[in-house]
Structure formats: structure tokens, C-alpha cells
Design a protein around this nucleic acid. Structure first.
Lengths: 224, 224
DNA sequence: CATACTATGCGTATATTTTACGCTAATATA
DNA sequence: TATATTAGCGTAAAATATACGCATAGTATG
């Protein structure tokens, strides 16, 4: 067979800090689009799986190791790369604030977080990829507790509420959200409190992954 | 770059007839898995998009032209094909009973419908692909009116109900389902009736695509 | 140190949606 | 004509979602 298509992977990684959702981008070192921003990614090696390829490229280009990573969509328009035919399997990742800071010790002098409300011009069809990823994030957070991947292990309830509010781009009734979330029975209330600034100190919570997977297995549906 | 990965597409096509969901499979003519059943598909040509590739392969191998086709998932384990590294972008398609009969005039002497409750042994990782497709079908039918892609243009309400019931694998309250479905306001009631066997003749309905897309644009959510 | 201010945490009343199921209508068939 | 069978409409009760009120436990301020 005479096929000469190349296969790459790309990773749209979202982080959450200071009530803002950000994406991780890299500045391209070579043509085409040299100097422009792009979603991290690269070609798949013959021996590695797609998941291994994204994880490797992310590590190489940004120094970040990701926990939550799932396949988003495969982009294959014949002209999406001006040089040659490249089909790219895009992934979708989330990262906690504690792992949010970019490792300095990498190739990636030029990796940077951008708020999704203030994006630079992107290379290739990466704007389209990112748009789809944002839609997926919004949809996904309403029916799977991926929010916990974006927060620290222990967090005050208001952090969770603010996260939902900023991802969904609308106000959420604090009291109803709390009732519903706690009603799902996938959060453990800790005996620790935090006080930031004024106001009553808040109890800390943790996501109970085991309980969540158990409920999911039983077919119980999470929905916000 | 020294990458030698080949890219293929596969299409899981579902049809619905006699209250049964079926999948379209082909019998392999060559090794590996010669004589075994497989999901139709093949290699992507350098000049065509992924969507063009699936449509072409489907036509060549089964004689069927599909209306509803969407990307399902990309399968890329290094050893999924015993000969060489093949990454496959799987698609998910639906077809109406009227177009359900296989064209005789093709390569595809060996294309056949199988009820999803009675599947043959499959080649490669196609069992895994099919399993994912079934899950997707079940999920999708609850929040997008894809059911209409599986029915004839005009249909009695009970057909729609039986379709949902067989896709979801559980009984549905006839009266509540009707109320909810009609309440969505995406069905047009016709002045025609059909009578099949005993019982009161039923009115025919049609899906109103325009109204659906309009509602969707306005953000109205369909859910069963 | 009293008073205001702020965020947390719990509760309750009302509106909306879902669920369960009774009943009548129109036709085929015995 | 009686009976079975599918279609079509409606209503009551249960469950969920929504809209708020208010006490609580701290910090900030005069």
C-alpha cells in the first residue's frame, strides 16, 4: 500500500487557578508557524500506544505529568498541516493546581498557561481542537466528577462551587449546589478547617474515588 | 521521521428492523482472520478526509450509503493488527430500514446483518470497538433524537417506543414516553393512519429536523 | 471591644418534573 | 356480537429542582 499519512497526538491540558480555567500551550520553535502558539503534541512512535505518545510528548514539551487524560477526537482533514498529510489524535487532560507550575527543567522554555478567555492566535487547526475541548469540558463536568482533577486533594466547598461556576460560565446557587453535591455521597468531610481572609472558616472536603466508582458500577448517575 | 504506522477507518453501522438492532459485518477474504467476520473498513487514501474514507469503504464493501455517521473513537494499541502497526479511526453509523437491504451489486457477497444479541466471533479488536459503539448508541439515543435515523420517514408512535425499548434494553412506559416525546415538539403528526394487525390504527408521525435544529441552537436540551 | 462585614452552613416553602397507572377509542378476530 | 389488541388521553402522587431566609463563626474597623 502506498499510504504516506503521518500520525500525531495533541494534548489540550486544562488547569484551574484563581478562579480561572487555563490551557497549556507551547511556542513553536520551527516552521511552519514558527513563533506561534500551539497545543503540545508530536508524532507517535512505532512502538508506543497513543496514550504513551501523548504522555511522552507532554512531558518532553512542558515537563508536566498528567493524571487525567482521555481521548477527545481525531482530526484528519487532508490540508490541516501545510507540509504533509498529518492526522492527529487529540487528547483532553486536567491537572491540579499543585502540579500546575511548569517544570523549568525541560526543553520547554516556551510553555505557558493561557486563560481560555484570553487566547493567543493558534497554529494549524488548533483553535478548532481547543474549541471542541472546551465544549467537552463543560459537558463532562456536569455528568462526571472530573472537577476534582482540577482541585487540590483537600479543598473547601466554595472552591468546588467556584470551579463549576467558571467552567459553566454562569452563577450557581450556593446552597442548592451544596445540597446536591453532598447528596451524591462522593465527598468526605474532613475535620480540618481553612480560613482565607474574612468570613467563617470552611471545612475541608476530599473526593472519595472508591465510593464514586462503586456507585458508578451500580449504575447511579451523577449529574449537576 | 521514520514512522511507519498505517491509518485505517472502520464503520460500525446499526440498523433496526423487526424490533431488533443489528450491525453490519463483512466476512474477511484475506489473511489475517480470513473467513472471520469483521467491521467494514479499510485504509485511508492520502488525498481523502477520514469521513470520505469511511463512506467509500462502506460503499465498496457493503454497497450501503449512510446518512448518519459520526466519529466514535480511535484505536491504536501497537499490537491490534498482527501484521503491522495500524491505527484505526472508528465511526458509528445508523441506517433506516428502507435502505437496510444490502445491495447485491457489489464486492460484498459477504456482507451481512447480525443482531447485536447474537454476534459471531470478530476479527482484530473489533469486539471491543463494537462494544463501545453499543454503549455510545445507548447513551446517545437518550440525549439526541438519533432514533429517527433508524426509522422510516413516516412511522407510527409505537415504532419509536419499541426502538427506544430495544436499544435501552428495558421497558418504557408507553404513556409517559409519548407525553415526553411529543412535549419536545420535534414531531409532526400527519393525517395518515396505518393499521397493522389488530388494534386501533395509529397515526403516522414525522421527525421535524428544522424545528429540532432550531431548538438545539436555542440551547433546549432533549432528554429521555 | 462593640459593631459591621463576610463567607459558611442549614433549612423550608414552592414550582416543576417524573412516575405510576386508570380509562376510553378504534380496529381485527373469534 | 363479544373479546382481544393496540392507540391515545388524563390525573394523582412522588420525587427533584429552585428560590430564598437566616443563624453561625470568623475577620476587619472605628
Amino acid at each position: 500500500m502506498q499510504q504516506s499519512i503521518k500520525l500525531s497526538v495533541d494534548a489540550v491540558v486544562f488547569g484551574y487557578e484563581s478562579e480561572t480555567i487555563s490551557v497549556l500551550l507551547i511556542k513553536r520553535k520551527y516552521e511552519p508557524f514558527k513563533g506561534k502558539w500551539a497545543i503540545p503534541g508530536g508524532f507517535v512512535l512505532d512502538s508506543e500506544s497513543l496514550e504513551e505518545a501523548v504522555a511522552r510528548e507532554l512531558k518532553e514539551e512542558t515537563g508536566i505529568k498528567i493524571n487525567y487524560l482521555e481521548q477527545l477526537y481525531t482530526f484528519g482533514k487532508p490540508d490541516r498541516d501545510p507540509r504533509k498529510r498529518v492526522v492527529s489524535v487529540a487528547y483532553f487532560g486536567l491537572i491540579k493546581p499543585s502540579a500546575f507550575k511548569l517544570a523549568a527543567s525541560t526543553d520547554a522554555e516556551e510553555a505557558q498557561w493561557f486563560s481560555i478567555t484570553n487566547l493567543p492566535e493558534l497554529s494549524f487547526d488548533h483553535a478548532e481542537i481547543l474549541k471542541l475541548a472546551i465544549t467537552r469540558l463543560q459537558a463532562k463536568i456536569t455528568y462526571e466528577p472530573i472537577g476534582f482533577e482540577l482541585l487540590d486533594t483537600k479543598f473547601p466547598f466554595s472552591d468546588l462551587e467556584k470551579l463549576y461556576s467558571s467552567v459553566l460560565g454562569r452563577d450557581i446557587d450556593r446552597r442548592n449546589f451544596r445540597k446536591k453535591m453532598l447528596g451524591l455521597n462522593i465527598l468526605d468531610e474532613l475535620d480540618e478547617k481553612v480560613s482565607k481572609g474574612s468570613g467563617r472558616p470552611a471545612n475541608l472536603f476530599m473526593f472519595n474515588k472508591n465510593r464514586y466508582f462503586k456507585l458508578k458500577k451500580e449504575g447511579i448517575i451523577f449529574e449537576i
